[in-house]
Simulated assay, not measured.
Amino acid sequence: MRDLGIEAAKITRALWYVDKQACIFCGEEQGVICPACTTEYLHPELGRCRGCGKLILSEKIHCLDCEAGKGPKHLDQITAWGHYAGGLKEFIQEIKFKAHPRRLMEIARPFSDWAISQLPVVDGVVAVPMHASRMAERGFNQAEVISSVLHWQLGLPILCGVERIASTSSQVSLSRQERLHNLKGAFEVQQPEKIKGRSIWLVDDVTTTGATLEAVAETLRESGVQAIYGLCLAAGLEKKLVPLCD
């Protein structure tokens, strides 16, 4: 009986405890995100442009584009957890294109802790919506999964009602102005009275020019949302910075 008790204890420890946790980006057994990957992909030493979210020199609050008036106008702030490159980029692409949304739970705690340290507490979280045709193709909206992570970790309500009513062409090769034109009229708020006067985090996986966040935010502003803070997993680096990874 004593041996059975020892074996049961070993099984319990195996189920509930992990002595060494592998880094989700490189696999090294140095914690959820190892120091090397934190430096290479999350860049805590760099600031984030308050206008578009891209990583910039820490002493500034806006990138050159936003200083020149070329950034989003309808958000109070945009911030991104890390640089869309290397291990973080591969992680996001595996979630989106290889249908592994559950992997977002691996970063739930560090991402949520970072988000609440960067942005004001708000009334709720809004996910950038996906058109029904894309949803049918992919099977999930990664922005909604990220919103669910924030809800469970921080207790922030998920606010629904924003829909993507137009299916648009790919934004990848378009300039910011072309992206904004492409997204014109693509979003609509159902029952705006439910979000009027509220403050929100507007959540997506990646921001490059900020055009998608801007298009959704414009629709939200027209529906009476008081404060909008964009939050993404990753963004680009300001062009004048030397790339720190490919």
Rank of each mutant, 00 (worst) to 15 (best):
M130R: 02
D123K: 08
R164V: 05
Q153M: 13
R138Y: 02
S147D: 01
G161V: 06
Q153R: 15
L154Q: 13
H151N: 15
H151I: 04
V121K: 15
D123W: 07
H151T: 13
H131K: 09
V149L: 09
V145N: 06
V122D: 02
P129V: 12
V128H: 03
N141R: 04
H151Y: 11
V126Y: 02
G155C: 08
I146Y: 03
L159Q: 09
M135D: 00
V121S: 14
Q142S: 07
V122E: 04
C160G: 01
V126S: 01
G155M: 04
A136N: 13
A143C: 05
M135S: 02
N141C: 09
A143E: 04
A132T: 10
A127Q: 07
R138G: 03
V121P: 00
F140P: 00
C160Y: 11
A132C: 04
P157A: 13
N141V: 10
S147C: 15
L156N: 06
V128R: 06
A127I: 09
M130E: 05
P157V: 14
A143T: 05
L154A: 11
V122K: 07
P157M: 13
V125K: 09
R138A: 04
R138F: 02
H151D: 14
S148Q: 14
V128C: 11
V121E: 13
A127E: 06
S147A: 15
R134I: 05
I146G: 03
M135K: 03
Q153D: 01
G155A: 06
